[in-house]
């Protein structure tokens, strides 16, 4: 089976509310968990990381957007920086894993 990625772009409506996007992510993540049993272990790790990233996407928006708009001062700057760096590393795990698992 050969998989391909087209150059064509489809613009699709985003879910109309954060509740709907949460439900969408929940549905997709549940399906992935069901299907993960048939995946090799190395793929299972990647899918779990990706599921967590999906779950965090509405939460991330709820936290970051108000903070950005209000220019809130972070009380524990060092801790916030460390958490941000951890988040950045976390966000890179999926593409890095994909690169490692290239055919």
């Amino acid at each position: 089976m050969i998989f391909g990625l087209a150059d064509a772009v489809c613009r699709n409506e985003a879910p109309p509310s954060l509740y709907e996007i949460t439900q969408q992510c929940r549905r997709w993540a549940a399906g992935n968990l069901q299907a993960s049993e048939i995946l090799p272990f190395r793929y299972e790790v990647l899918t779990r990381v990706r599921n967590a990233a999906w779950a965090l996407s509405p939460i991330f928006t709820l936290i970051v957007v108000p903070l950005s708009l209000l220019s809130v001062t972070v009380a524990y700057g060092g801790l916030f920086f460390a958490a941000s760096m951890a988040g950045a590393v976390y966000a890179r795990l999926v593409p890095l894993g994909c690169r490692l698992l290239r055919r």
């Binding site: 089976m1 990625l5 489809c10 613009r11 699709n12 985003a14 509405p58 991330f60």
Partner: peptide, 20 residues
């Protein structure tokens, strides 16, 4: 055999859900 088209979101009623 299976070709994925690229997905990009369109904003609907909610800016927050668009960003999410």
């Amino acid at each position: 055999d299976i070709v994925q088209l690229r997905e990009k979101p369109r904003r609907t009623g909610s800016n927050l859900s668009f960003l999410a």
